[in-house]
Design a binder for these strands. Structure first.
Lengths: 212, 212
DNA sequence: ATGGTTGGTGGACAGGTGTCCACCGTTTCA
DNA sequence: TGAAACGGTGGACACCTGTCCACCAACCAT
């Protein structure tokens, strides 16, 4: 290239840079097809390297997918942990978490397209990794629930089951958001999801007090 | 073939038969890959016809996918409608519906693998078709809810939102069932899902009575 | 200064892919 | 009875795929 573009870069820096480029390209291309249907050559072409060079960074497409999963959940977990620790523990921090999630879906749409697709997609390794991460979220939410007043007498089983339902609702909300371009539709989805979360917490509150 | 195999078949019958074979083969093969990553030649080989002959039945892979969706939801809707009309309307028929669903997942596993994969999968046409069918279920469940005693004063919006959550929970349950081979795990999933459905209906019952 | 390490290149390979064409034998129906 | 319609065949086409090899030039540590 004729552009100067800071030629002073150490080798490892340059490697990291094309690694980034590969991840980004893969994300971009995975919008129109699952990871397993993703072509190494396509990715390489998008990045601007020879198809071979891909193997200098990832041993397989699966490994690429796992790296994407790590990256995605790494930052997302950080964000949600922040909003959760800022909030007073007494009340559930679930609704504000939804706000963070929606923002994130907006700014990093492709990551979530990838996520929702690969969650049930072709590669078993990637699928399992995503499932594991979601289970971690589930556990965290269950912990939040346990901290709520009046919920102490629940069995851990019940905590887990209701937390699972919340995660499920959130994932479904993300899916709907992704395929809704119009602004009002997005607002409606967010409102509906908030309502669902409230329904869930109410149901949870009255759960144990029920005879049986 | 040397087997006699009832050679007395009208042309349209034979066409229908290989059409069936194509649908079955596609379902079989779609276990290990999304529809968009499905090879026409693979399907043809499995069926035992020349790759070309595929086009005598479907104009494209998308059309195949749409046919599968139609078939899947056709019978499923029938089954659920049966269990629902047999039950007294007074109580929600949601939990027995879950039983039917689980049975169906057992006997027609491949259909549900296809369903959960293509629901967020590559082809926009198939994805939309599935989404539409699920919305129909949603509407039916909302209707069931409206018939329940003490729920009459809900807004149709609320009905819809909570019905949506139920469908979401059911879809998630199916997904978990598909990737759980061990028998106890299956039982646990069913139990957890039933608990979730009960939580939901409880939450729904106390929903309107709440101030705000 | 030198030599190994490393990110990247180019070409080749064996195979797989969707789709088009001309053709065939049987069924259908007029 | 004859001709048209139809489901299916076989081969060819242009193209794309992952992966392997030898090779290169620059970087890094010695």
């Amino acid at each position: 290239m004729s552009t100067p573009e800071e030629p002073e870069l150490t080798r490892t820096e340059r490697k990291e840079r094309t690694r980034r480029a590969i991840l980004d390209a893969a994300l971009e291309l995975s919008e129109q097809g699952s990871l397993s249907a993703l072509s190494l050559r396509h990715v390489a072409r998008e990045v601007g390297i020879a198809p071979n060079a891909f193997y200098r960074h990832f041993a397989s497409a699966d490994e690429l997918g796992l790296a994407l999963v790590d990256e995605l959940f790494g930052t997302l977990r950080q964000l949600l942990s922040d909003v959760r620790s800022a909030r007073p523990i007494s009340d559930g921090a679930i609704v504000p978490s939804l706000g963070v999630l929606v923002d994130r879906v907006h700014t990093e749409r492709l990551q979530f397209v990838f996520l929702t697709r690969e969650r049930v997609g072709g590669s078993a390794a990637v699928r399992t990794a995503i499932r594991r991460e979601l289970e971690l979220f589930e556990a965290e939410i269950a912990l939040d629930f346990a901290r709520m007043p009046g919920a102490v007498q629940w069995s851990s089983e019940d905590l887990r089951v209701s937390a699972n339902l919340i995660v499920t609702a959130l994932v479904a909300a993300v899916e709907r958001l992704l395929y809704t371009q119009d602004r009002d539709g997005e607002q409606a989805i967010v409102a509906a999801t908030e309502k669902q979360l409230r329904m869930l917490t109410i149901g949870a509150r009255t759960w144990r007090s029920r005879p049986r």
